[in-house]
Simulated assay, not measured.
Amino acid sequence: MAMMRSRFSGCGLRGAAAGALAAVWLAVATPAHAIFSDDEARRAILDLRARLEAQRQTLETLRQALEAAERQLQELRAGGDAARRGTLDVVNQIEALRRELAELRGQQERLARDVADVQRQQRDTLAAFDERLRALEPIKVSVEGVEFTARPDEKAAFEAAMAALRASEFARAAQAYASFLARYPDSGYAPLALYWRGNALYAARDCAAAIQSYQQLLEQFPKHPRAPEAMLAVASCQLELKDVKAARATWQALVARYPDTEAAATARDRLARLR
C-alpha cells in the first residue's frame, strides 16, 4: 500500500510540475523586445508583471511539491522493506522536481530581465519624446519691449540671422531674414525681421529692396516700436537714391504719424536743414 501511495503521489507531483512548466513556457513565449510606442510598452510591462507573478506562484507550487516529495521519502525510508523498495522511485522524482525548479528559476530570471528591458525602453522612449516635445513647445520671449511666444526653432532661426548681421555679412543676413519670414510669416519676430532685413539691404547698398522691407513693416505693423525708425530709414534710402522730394514727404509723414518719437525729432531737424 505504501508503494502504491508513493507512486500515486509521485505521479501527482510530476503532474503539478509539468503543469507549472507549461504555464512558464506560455509566460515567456512572447518576445519582449519589439516594443516601440509608449502605450505598447505600458501594456507589455503590465503583461510581463502578470506573467512574473503567475510564475512566482508556479515556483511556490513546485517548491511545495518538492517538500511533499521529500517528506514522503523520509516516510518511506522509515518504513519497512516494501516501503524502502519505493524509495528509488521517489528519489528520482525529487531529482526531476529539483531540475525543473532550477529551470523554472532560470526562466523567472529571464522574464524579470525582460520586464527591466521593457521598462528601460519605455523610459528611453519617453525621454526622447519629451526632448522632441520641448524642441517644439513655444516659449515666452520679450524683445525690445514686445512679448510673444515662439518655438525654439523659430527663435534659433531669428538669432542666426541676427548673428550674420552682427558679423557684417549683410547679404547673408538679408537672405536669412527673408528665409525666416517665408518660414514663419506669423511670427512675433516678423516685424523685427523686416526691420533688420531692411537695414542689412541698406548696408549692402540695395536701397530699393530695403525700402520695400521697411514699407512692409509699416503696412503690416504700424504700431510696432521700430516703425518710426523704419520710416526714418526709408527717407535715408530715398536720399541715397537722390530722391530728395520723396525723402521730404517721408519725413513730414513721420512727424505727423509718430510726433512724440526720437525718429520724429530727427525728421524735424532734417526738414529744417532743407529750408
Rank of each mutant, 00 (worst) to 15 (best):
S6Q: 11
E53A: 14
E159K: 12
R134Q: 11
A263Q: 10
S9P: 01
L73D: 08
D260W: 04
N199R: 13
A247P: 03
A96V: 06
P138N: 11
W251Q: 04
R98I: 00
A128P: 01
L201K: 01
S168G: 00
Y195T: 05
Y202V: 00
R99Y: 02
R248H: 13
N92D: 12
P138I: 08
L46H: 12
A163N: 05
A156T: 08
L194N: 04
E100F: 03
A164R: 14
I45A: 06
A174M: 09
S142L: 10
V90D: 06
R84H: 05
P31Q: 13
A272Y: 05
E75P: 00
A23S: 15
R248W: 00
L181S: 08
A272V: 11
A16I: 09
Q55Y: 03
S187Y: 05
D38H: 13
G12L: 15
Q55L: 14
V90S: 06
T149E: 15
S168M: 00
Q57F: 03
R113I: 00
C207M: 06
R42H: 12
E70D: 14
S179I: 00
V146S: 02
A174R: 05
M3H: 12
S37K: 09
R273L: 13
F180I: 08
P31W: 09
L26K: 15
R183P: 05
C207A: 09
A18M: 14
A34W: 06
P191F: 08
D39P: 01
Q55A: 10
G79S: 03
V28I: 14
L26T: 09
T87E: 15
R132F: 02
E75C: 01
V141E: 12
A96D: 09
P259A: 10
R63M: 08
E169T: 05
A157R: 07
V255P: 02
D47Y: 08
L111E: 02
A161E: 01
T30M: 14
R197D: 03
A2L: 12
L126N: 09
L101M: 05
A32M: 06
Q107N: 06
T250D: 01
A112M: 11
E229G: 08
R205M: 08
R166Y: 03
R197P: 02
D243N: 13
E169D: 11
R85W: 02
A2D: 10
Q252R: 12
A18Q: 15
M3A: 15
G106K: 03
L241G: 04
D117E: 10
R49V: 03
S187C: 07
A200C: 10
R205V: 08
D124M: 12
E100R: 06
F170V: 03
Q175M: 05
P222W: 07
R71N: 14
K242S: 10
Y214Q: 07
W196M: 02
E131C: 01
Y195C: 01
R43P: 01
L136I: 00
M231T: 03
A235P: 03
R172W: 01
Q108R: 13
G198V: 02
R268M: 07
L48S: 04
R132L: 12
L165D: 04
D260Y: 04
